[in-house]
Nucleic acid binder design. Sequence first.
DNA 1: CGTCACTTTGAACATCTTCAAAGCACGTGG
DNA 2: CCACGTGCTTTGAAGATGTTCAAAGTGACG
Lengths: 247, 247
Amino acid sequence: MAHVISAPIPGVSAPHCLDCPTRRSAEWNVLGDEEMAHLAAGKSARTYRKGELIFAQGQPCLGIYCIASGTAAVGRTEPSLPTVLVRLAHAGQTLGYSHLVLTDGWRASAKALEPSVICSVESSQLERLLKRHQGLAQRFQAHLVADLEQTEAALAHLAWQPVRSRLARLIVALAERTGSSNGQNFVRLKLPMTRRDMADLLCTRPETLTRTMQAMESDGVLISAGHRVDIPDLGRLRQESVATHLH
Amino acid sequence: MAHVISAPIPGVSAPHCLDCPTRRSAEWNVLGDEEMAHLAAGKSARTYRKGELIFAQGQPCLGIYCIASGTAAVGRTEPSLPTVLVRLAHAGQTLGYSHLVLTDGWRASAKALEPSVICSVESSQLERLLKRHQGLAQRFQAHLVADLEQTEAALAHLAWQPVRSRLARLIVALAERTGSSNGQNFVRLKLPMTRRDMADLLCTRPETLTRTMQAMESDGVLISAGHRVDIPDLGRLRQESVATHLH
DNA sequence: CGTCACTTTGAACATCTTCAAAGCACGTGG
DNA sequence: CCACGTGCTTTGAAGATGTTCAAAGTGACG
């Protein structure tokens, strides 16, 4: 909203689809080389700055997005309520398919949490691919189901877990994705978003997040310095993400 | 879990698919008479008692369910957490499609909240119909997207609205579905579930639900007697479902 | 190198949970 | 048809968890 279109991307940061992390990790991996070439020819890539909007709730949607590098989040804003970040999307994942099914425009927003390179595929081209390749449609449908599952799980955790457990869960998930483990249990990672974003993701307030992280730090569960977090014992953090309730 | 298979259903309660409320309100309405006849021949119907399980998280799933009459709820249980009722299903709606996409078994449970008549369609037969009728697949996919939307909305409301607003929202939704309005604004309705179920749906405790309803009653927003609720001014209740936050 | 947004701190307060116990209601079996 | 019991509902009191508001730091980015 507040940002302007950024400069065209240098060749390095926008890989050909065949070399993209996307290739193996996402729904596209059912496509053969020839079809991938079609995809590569039809897509367009852009860099996004931290915080920049990829699409906005309410606007017409013209295609889907595929993250080449970086991290994005899907945010949902209900009338007269603060935004909730309902889902993260990492390199190799696609964004926006569910909104294409009904042609009503975006019913959520997405923004880059970090500097990111993101490709877009026009809906007309996607539809052509979906028709030609039956398996691709199944992949996207599975994606839909996975999103539903994940959102239901988030609902359950929000309902019954305190902020501290939800935070532990988030950090464990991030650590498993990008953490570098120096020992057996010691892990260091870089949080790919601001505290504000983390709060929106955990459905709490920045103040509470700060205090919760401090509490965890003083309990020796983690050491945080800006966006860097060190976890002396990942197992202990994993326990925190479940613990609390016994009843 | 605690209940036994109930008696076979009398003819009245299990309508032929062509006469079913399902016919117009659900995904089936893209089917022609001939295909509906196929569906009617292949389905099987059963009555469920209040609280009876329709399917259970973890077990293999063999088909989908379609509610002829009554009310059911889909419940999700995360490891070591209480159950959350993530979704209601009313007459004419189908249940379980999303779980059929991945063949992993049910990843949620469903139970009848009221005495209900529910038909089941085997997955083999459903697949045959889906292949023959392209439009049907689209309908089910739209259903998937609608569920995702609804769950995301529930997440936002759970995150930012107090119990009282969430309760108001639920009652308004039920009133709009089955309420009988005697005047312009006066509405009477019957809650199709126990307080326990309502609490699980609103992600709160039965105690809190009781107290919240009493508070609303003493504020004159509603009058409740068992499962019957009278709403003097539906508009006022609608406001409550949004109000609270201005910030 | 300045600006603006993000982050942190403190204190008061609201909301909701927890535990324990009593009342009630419904369906089951006699 | 009535008695009985199990699970649902209600009440009360105490305490935990998280929010709100305001204001002072801090840091990142252009």
